[in-house]
């Protein structure tokens, strides 16, 4: 859907930080990379804004189509199956959350794509720092940028489509977003592992993004998915998060019971994705080292 060219200047790491001990995770490295990325990103503030505006062009076709097909009866049918009264409000907040998903997928994919072009993957991975920390650092800074973009998107959507949301439950919303974000990092590790093995970042990110987008209830309630797809959908951290956030911002009701249940669900997904993600990435690294095909993108 989107094609981004990130500036892949992580390559300069090797020089400065040789004194760090090699551990499996090194938060100071992540912080360092995140800060460096942010410093670079802030030099091009226009990009972050533009990333809040472009998705409007992707949301609009869905809304227009739903309007055209549903007509005047559309909203009635929609609230029957989803429990929410207005599909425009429903869709917009869905996209707001999905921005993070999109970003976690594309952020990783583009990092690798850039390395592929410039041939710096090997030097980057030769740096004596845990690779996961490098990826994580990138993910941190991306998340900050995405938050700005997503807020810009939300603001413009509200203006353009004339929708409003309740902000009284802002704290629980933030907690859910953070949990989802961390679970997505784990998902990103998994994706990074796949990319290292398949060496095809463009297609892989497109493919993963398309599948995740389809099973995530962004434009439609989860009820319209076939049963097996619903199971897959609930494995996505964004599904739970979008559901909870919709409740919180659209109906402005806070039910501690179901909220806690949702948070617990997110926590277990977080643990699951980190475990699987780290394992996949480790395995992938090992796999490529054995075949000696790290640089051969």
């Amino acid at each position: 859907m989107t094609v981004v060219e990130t500036t892949g200047d992580e390559g300069d790491l090797s020089a400065d930080h040789t004194e760090f001990k090699v551990r499996s995770l090194d938060w100071s490295i992540s912080k360092l990379i995140a800060l460096k990325n942010l410093r670079i990103a802030l030099r091009y503030p226009a990009n972050i804004i533009v990333w809040g505006i472009i998705p409007l062009l992707w949301i609009a076709p869905y809304l227009l189509m739903m309007t055209a097909i549903g007509g005047s009866a559309g909203n009635t049918y929609f609230s029957e199956i989803s429990g929410f009264d207005d599909f425009i409000r429903f869709v917009v907040i869905g996209w707001f959350v999905y921005m993070y998903v999109d970003n976690s997928i594309w952020g990783i994919g583009n990092t690798f794509r850039w390395e592929q072009f410039s041939g710096t993957l090997e030097p980057l991975f030769l740096a004596p720092v845990p690779r996961i920390s490098i990826l994580l650092g990138g993910a941190f800074s991306d998340s900050v940028q995405t938050t700005i973009s997503a807020l810009v998107l939300l603001a413009f959507s509200c203006l353009l489509f004339g929708v409003t949301y309740s902000v009284t439950m802002i704290l629980p919303v933030i907690i859910v977003l953070l949990l989802m974000l961390f679970a997505l990092f784990g998902f990103g590790f998994m994706l990074a592992g796949l990319i290292i093995v398949f060496k095809d970042p463009s297609v892989l990110t497109e493919l993963v993004d398309a599948v995740v987008f389809t099973v995530t209830p962004v434009n439609y309630p989860i009820e319209v998915l076939p049963k097996y797809a619903q199971v897959l959908s609930y494995l996505m951290p964004a599904t739970l998060a979008i559901g909870i956030i919709r409740e919180l911002t659209m109906t402005a009701s806070f039910e501690p019971g179901s909220y806690l249940l949702g948070v617990l669900g997110l926590l277990s997904l977080l643990a699951l994705f980190w475990a699987v993600g780290l394992a996949v990435f480790r395995y992938a690294e090992h796999w490529t080292k054995e075949r000696g095909s790290m640089g051969g993108f």
């Binding site: 189509m65 909203n75 049918y77 199956i81 599909f87 434009n219 439609y220 319209v224």
Partner: peptide, 9 residues
Amino acid sequence: PMVLAGSAV
């Protein structure tokens, strides 16, 4: 996704 969105309305 288009078909799914349509089937929601």
